[in-house]
Simulated scan of single mutants.
Amino acid sequence: MRVLVLSPEANFREFVCQLLEGWGLEAFSGTKEWKRPDLMVTLEARSQDLRFLDSLFEGQGRVPIINISRRPRGHHWEFKNIHPVNLRRPFFPHQLLLSIERLLKAKLSVGPDRRLLALVGRSPAMMSIKKFLPAAAKAELPIFIEGAPGTGKTLLARFLHAYSDRADGPFVIFDPRNLPPTLQATALLGAVRGGFKGQRRALPARLKMAQGGTLLIKNIEYLCPDLQKALLRVLESGKFTPLGSRASEMADIRLITTSIWDREAIISSGRVFPQLFFRLESLHFYLPPLQERLQDIGPLIEYFLEIYAAFYGFSYQAMGGRAERALREHRFSDNVRGLEEAVKVFLLEGEEGLSRMIPEISRMPEIRIRPLSQIEDELLSAMPTVAATKALNQ
């Protein structure tokens, strides 16, 4: 399959071509030997660019195009020869892969290691998650994800949705934290018109919005008791009742919940009904904090450098030096999310900007690595002096 990559940024072209070739696709960015591509990937294509491409492929069949943009806009006209879809920049590799598969309506023969590129890490914990994820995604059972802030719980939930049989359905997020019980109920269950005082229009339910797809409830320990009962009913019968309505509605969803609390703390605190929690954790994932997977910090730094260098239009350069040592030794309260932000700061402001975020970097000695040839030359030049000194001492 031939994929044409068009972008004024050479770094972006190289990055995307490497991804596509890693997935077994034939990627090219030049147009000297012109042949109709099976797919195109463009960067920040404007409406006039898309119109030109539409005229270029006249009579050659419709060509799907993925336009990667910081500010994706809808297309308000109908093209005859191209089918453009938007992907927000910055993007992660799995998002591009899924967009390609949806456009082509076919799965590419890409192994799990390359599909799960955004789940970076070689630690035993991450390898176990990658091994278990494909089977868990295909199951229709509820999933509970436990992990400290910033460990990637939402990202893991997106992967579970993307590689499930519900991937073409919606992925809806609901976070009850900081919401009073009435607003929690309105958001999760919805409300009919006139369902309560001052209610002039119907409000959509998250359970309805996620129909045929996946509903992610973050921070499940903050869900009020009445909604926990309603959620238990959804799991048992697949039905819920909007506020102000007497009729039940069906909820055809896959349910994923997350929490920063561990299993024992949730049960002992009584924040979640035991009978509900046991149903929610039919499948259980644990995402360890960054300090428990130190061997993943190096690969994560390289991954974020590559992703955001392509986003900001910089040439990729390894970090190295005391900046990388500071990131490896610093304890980020936000775990992977904090490390990601630090890499962004380094790319935009260099070591000076990073030192404002991590003050201890300025106190670290700069280790200068000299070439081996230089060290050998210094040793050879010092040898006559050493020999003469020994002779005088004798």
Rank of each mutant, 00 (worst) to 15 (best):
S128E: 14
A139N: 08
P84R: 00
E58F: 05
L183V: 12
E78R: 01
E58D: 08
H83V: 00
L183A: 09
R115M: 02
I82Q: 12
I82S: 15
N81S: 14
T186C: 06
H161P: 01
G150S: 05
D175V: 00
P64D: 05
T151I: 07
K138R: 14
R89M: 12
A135S: 11
H75K: 01
P112E: 14
S123P: 03
P134I: 10
F159A: 08
G121D: 07
R89P: 01
A135Q: 14
G152A: 11
R122S: 10
A185K: 14
R70M: 12
L179A: 10
T182Q: 09
A148P: 10
L98I: 15
F159Y: 15
N86I: 05
D165I: 03
G152F: 04
L103Q: 08
K105A: 10
A162T: 15
L189D: 07
R193H: 06
I100S: 11
I145P: 06
R166T: 11
L108N: 06
L98C: 01
G59R: 02
V120S: 04
I65D: 03
F174W: 09
G147R: 03
R115A: 08
L97K: 00
Y163P: 00
V110L: 13
Q60W: 14
P181Y: 13
D168L: 12
L108V: 00
P181G: 10
L103C: 03
K105Q: 14
A167S: 15
D165A: 02
D165Q: 10
P124N: 05
L98Y: 09
A191D: 07
R89Y: 15
L119D: 06
